[in-house]
Every structure is written in structure tokens, then in C-alpha cells.
Design a protein around this nucleic acid. Structure first.
Lengths: 208, 208
DNA sequence: GCATCCATGTAACCAGTTACATGATTTG
DNA sequence: CAAATCATGTAACTGGTTACATGGATGC
């Protein structure tokens, strides 16, 4: 699911691996820190697949507006640019600034709407870039997640087979888990209702 | 960290793989369900390491008291026993009931007190069997976890580098994460204080 | 006697990790 | 010029997963 994060970040601006990783770590859900050993191979894979591509010269000096935010990104791109366009062609090991291709953009959207994978980290990664979705798609994402959480909750406080000598610690742990799921569910419901409001906001004001 | 769970469950009673797995799934922190493809190889590994051992005949028909709880476990052991000791010798593929060896018990304790690995699942697995620890060891486990959570919290609401155009979704996600950590911390603090009370309970009644 | 669960295992794969090797650039 | 940081990458390993192969026992 590192793919979502990479494609999502590259959608915002072109970046090289090192910088990409710094952003990756401070993205919700990518604990404890995605390592270079997984980042670079992933970039290579995405490049081979045609989703990203090394942008060497001034293909896109990050259009215009984005200068407002993210100085670091601009700087990285600028420096890389200067280096490659400047002297010769950059030695074997220079910065390699990646950008999203058209198919990469498609791929990102594809990954974002894929509700099958109910994985926690995957969900967080999707939410982090869900502003790229339509309201309906976002709603679908949230509701799929909701289903998953409900499933987990029901699974948790069901039969309790063979739980004879549960220690107080296990019980406490189970309670904590239940509380965490409940809190998550409440959070999701808020998101969902706000999304619903957005959807049929202008049209009609029914259904909370 | 499947090792902790396996050893911990086998400490309670001898079990064969299939039954073990059923218990494993309803253990907190072993989402979404440990698969056979990881369970059996793990058992093999633990057996080769000498931590567990297949108990075939009446080596230990689960001593005496444990009959009180866990009917399923007793049944499984009994059936396996009957089968092996009963007819011939059981075909190539019969139930294989595993038990914990002495070194396995040591190993379990070792894994339980190992506070280095700050992994979430690892922590849950340890708590699930922390009744096997002394109060002091348990306290150390909880406090190590607390340190880890504090570290995460501080990491989360620090610099916020390059967070220019954070969408409402990312912000919401970060808030949720922060709330989850706070809740976890509160839960832990409760555990810790109750553990402290237990420790110096008889001696003096200070410090809540 | 057929389906279904119980039961054990292997093989191929997956998504990541750590440790290592390498080198360029910046800064004190 | 040395140390720190930036930067890219490979190799070996980890801790699992799914899919597959196999077969015994039970229930209807």
C-alpha cells in the first residue's frame, strides 16, 4: 500500500526518493517510518509499470501556485533541476526526481476506490488522499470501512468460545479493543454524515 | 510474534494445531486470523528449537485441576489420545498434540519480558499472557509501552513540516490518531496505577 | 456415499524490514 | 578536510499471506 502514498504525494508535486520518504513518515498511517529499502524498490517498480517517470529537465517546474506551500519540495526539485540541466547530465548517482504519469494518475484513482482491501493502513492511506475522489466515491470508501469495523465489533463480542479462565488482563485488553472500535466507528459516522450532507446538501436537506 | 501466542496457549494446555488456531483467532491482537500457512511452520520451528514437543501417549493427560475450564482443549487432547493409543498407531496424518517443554517455558518468559520490541501486536500478545509475570515485570512491560506511546504522541503533534495544504480529511485522520493514542495512554495509566497499588499495596497505601 | 468439517502440511508469494555499499554535497 | 547529511540503491531476511494437496472423521 506504499503505492497509494507514493502516487498520492507525487500527484501533489514531483519529488525525489529521499524527500518523498520524509513526507511519507509524517503521513498518517505510515508508521513507524517507511524505509529506503522498501521505498526505492517500490519507485523502481512503479517506474517500470509506467506510473511514475523520472523528470529530468524542466518538464514541470511545479506549475505556479504550489510555491505557497511546501518550500522543501520546491527546493528539492529546483536543486535537482539545476544539477541535471546545469553541468553535464548528472553522474551515475544523482537525484532522481519522479513525477506522476497519466496512467499513474489513473492508477492512483483505481487504488483509491478499491474498497476490497479492508486493511487498516490501506484505509488510512486512502483517506489521506481521498480529496481526489468524488463525494460519492468517498462515501463508498467510508461505508466500506464502516462495514469492516462493524464486522470486527460483532466478531469481538460474540461467542467468546473457550474463554473460561480469561485473566483480568485479557478482559481489559478486549474492552480496550472494543472501545477503540467504538471510537473509530463514531469518528467514521461523523465523516459519513458530513459527507452525506455535502452530497445532497444543495438539493434537499433531509436524512441528517 | 506468533511464538508468544503459541507458547502462551500451550502453557495453559496441550493442543494440536487446528485447535490452537481457533484459540489464536479469538486472542486479542491476532487479527484478522492467523493462517495455517503460518501456524504449522511456526510449530515446526518451535519444535525443532525444542520449545514445544509432540505429546503422543499419556505423557500428560492434562494433570488434574485444568478440567475446570476449557472443555474443548480437554476434548481435543482426549480424542487425539484415544486415537493414537487406541487402534494401531494412527496413520501418517493424525492429530499432533503439542505441549510446552521446560525450555519452552523459559523461552515464553523471555519473550514476555522483552520490552525492546515496541510493536503493537507484540504488546497485545504479551498482555494476553502477562499474568505469568511478576508484578514488577508487568509494570516494566506497561511502562515500556507507555514510553512508546508518549514517543508517538510527541512525534505526531510536533513540527508538522510541509503540511501546507493538509486537507480536512488528513487533519481529521490526525486528530483521530491523536485521540486513539490518548485513549490508549489513559487505559495504560489505569493498568499501571492498579499494578502499582498491587505492588506496594500491603506495605503502604500512598501514591494511588 | 457424499458433503462437511477436522487436520496437517507445502509452495509461491507479498510487503515490508535491516544491514550494507556507495557516493555526492554542505558546513563548520 | 572531516563530519554530517543528503541521496540511491542492493541483498538477505522476516513474518506473515493465499492457494494448493492430501486425507481422516462425522453426520445426514
Amino acid at each position: 500500500m506504499i503505492d497509494i502514498a507514493i502516487l498520492g504525494l507525487l500527484k501533489e508535486h514531483d519529488l525525489h526518493g529521499y524527500e518523498l520518504r520524509k513526507r511519507l513518515v509524517e503521513l498518517p498511517g505510515s508508521r513507524p517510518a517507511v524505509s529506503f529499502g522498501s521505498l526505492y524498490p517500490a519507485l523502481g517498480r512503479l517506474e517500470r509499470a509506467g506510473y511514475v517517470k523520472a523528470v529530468t529537465h524542466e518538464t514541470s517546474p511545479t506549475p505556479a501556485a504550489p510555491m505557497s506551500g511546501s518550500l522543501a519540495g520546491e527546493l528539492a526539485a529546483f536543486r535537482a533541476h539545476r544539477q541535471s540541466a546545469g553541468t553535464t547530465d548528472r553522474g551515475s548517482r544523482g537525484k532522481k526526481v519522479y513525477g506522476l504519469t497519466d496512467t499513474g494518475e489513473q492508477r492512483l484513482h483505481e487504488l483509491l476506490v478499491e474498497t476490497e482491501v479492508a486493511d487498516d493502513r490501506g484505509f488510512e492511506a486512502r483517506v489521506a488522499f481521498c480529496h481526489l475522489l468524488t463525494t460519492a466515491e468517498r462515501l463508498a470508501l467510508f461505508e466500506a470501512r464502516r462495514g469492516e469495523l462493524v464486522r470486527r465489533r460483532d466478531l469481538a463480542n460474540r461467542p467468546t468460545v473457550a474463554d473460561d479462565g480469561q485473566t483480568i488482563y485479557v478482559r481489559s485488553l478486549l474492552e480496550r479493543d472494543a472501545a477503540a472500535i467504538a471510537a473509530d466507528l463514531a469518528w467514521l459516522d461523523l465523516l459519513i454524515s458530513s459527507e452525506r450532507a455535502r452530497k445532497d446538501g444543495a438539493g434537499n436537506g433531509g436524512e441528517q
